[in-house]
Design a protein around this nucleic acid. Structure first.
Lengths: 241, 241
DNA sequence: CAGTATCCGATGCGATACTG
DNA sequence: CAGTATCGCATCGGATACTG
């Protein structure tokens, strides 16, 4: 009488849920909206997703017409791009992200920090600053990151920013030392950089002029301008898991 | 290092997906946004969802702070209501619904028609018309509905509209005879009522003055004002299933 | 680098039966 | 009417190994 495992509703919301509701699907779309086109770049934004699942999701999205896959011609890697319909999902992604930023409490969020995602998120949203040496290298040191993932480097170049997990061997212009919670809170706009500095939860060192510049972009995730609702009406205390 | 089965991302989109991504969750929220408060009313908008699952979803939503459940005091039934955070999801629901209406092709949608949902959707979005007899009864006859679900009645009263699956025994003011696809297409704005009438895919009979009134509300689902993109760029040809 | 193929375990979900 | 409890199957997704 109605399709196998679906909702049995012609309703556009139900149809959209069937297409977008699978685990990881929305996040894959976000990666694409944010500009990643290659398989491994998309995967870098989803550290906990297995490769086989990522491949499956991309295939589904392609079959559904949300993603186009141009196969790579020998040596060159293929590219994934959103179709017009896929691009149009930005309104949905934005609505969900803003809702989450406004209404979900910090605490459950801070229990979900993967340092690889944090750094990838920063690398994506930070722009090559002008009037800086080229290259300009910032080293992040997270006291509480898992072994082997304590140090990260952001290398600002003229038109690009590189993210490294191993010492790129460049001269370091600025050091940022902190813990993952603090970095995340500052980055997301959940606490003011000034306050974190005052409480000695983060330290930024290097030449004075560079340090002061660093203060400009460190609290600037795309969502940091959206502020949270008052603590007592936020949600997510009990995780669904 | 990160939560059990989650995305491992503090990111608000990921957190929101964890809360809302489970099957049926979005549709439950839609029912609540549309004003249903009682367990069985919510269930009526989700004919294919099992009762036990619906109960589970409502409990999760309550634990997450999106729904409040006031227990019923003897005899009186309890009520489910969205909290402020839950109400705020209307922006997300609207964005998804509009995206679906614009971009998902008719064909896959029309393979998912459950007549009970169709009628419930109409009953919800239709308003008691003024200047009509009270009560005013419309009988729908779907030639291709499953046995026992061919006839439905919408009874317009002063401040309410009743939906019946069995003959309410009232005098019928207007008859609407058609098939499920046509009714759905007209209702959703995917085809003009005029055209369906012209092609004899739908017939509306009764006293002339009432028939002409019926034409006014029959093509008026909340989303019917949003029109679809051109056929060739729509999506969903291959269902995810 | 960019995937595919296969296996297997966890869980999600539906069906059914039962309670206040 | 408004749910809860239990069971068992189906599918989803993670891990691993393999390919061009």
């Amino acid at each position: 009488m109605s399709s196998d495992t679906g909702y049995g509703q012609y309703c556009p919301l139900a149809m959209a849920s069937e297409m977008l509701g699978n685990k990881w699907t929305m996040l894959v779309i976000r990666e694409l909206l944010d500009g990643s086109t290659r398989f491994n770049d998309i995967g870098r934004g989803l550290p906990l997703a297995s490769r086989s699942l990522l491949a499956r999701r991309l295939r589904e999205l392609e079959q559904n017409g949300l993603v186009e896959h141009s196969a790579g011609t020998r040596g060159k890697s293929g590219k994934y791009r959103l179709t017009a319909a896929g691009e149009a999902l930005s309104s949905v992604v934005r609505a969900m992200a803003i809702w989450g930023q406004e209404w979900i409490d910090e605490e459950p969020s801070l229990r979900n920090i993967d340092v690889r995602f944090l750094m990838w998120d920063m690398r994506r949203n930070v722009h090559p600053a002008e009037f800086l040496p080229d290259p300009f290298t910032v080293q992040f040191i997270f006291s509480d990151a898992p072994e082997g993932l304590k140090d990260h480097w952001l290398v600002f170049k003229r038109d690009d920013v590189d993210l490294c997990y191993v010492d790129p061997g460049k001269e370091i212009d600025v050091y940022v030392e902190t813990d993952l919670r603090t970095m995340t809170r500052v980055w997301m706009g959940w606490c003011r950089l000034q306050d974190a500095l005052k409480e000695d939860k983060i330290s930024i060192t290097g030449q004075d002029k560079y340090v002061s510049r660093t203060l400009d972009w460190l609290g600037l995730s795309g969502l940091s301008k959206v502020s949270k609702q008052l603590k007592h009406i936020r949600v997510g205390g009990n995780s669904t898991v």
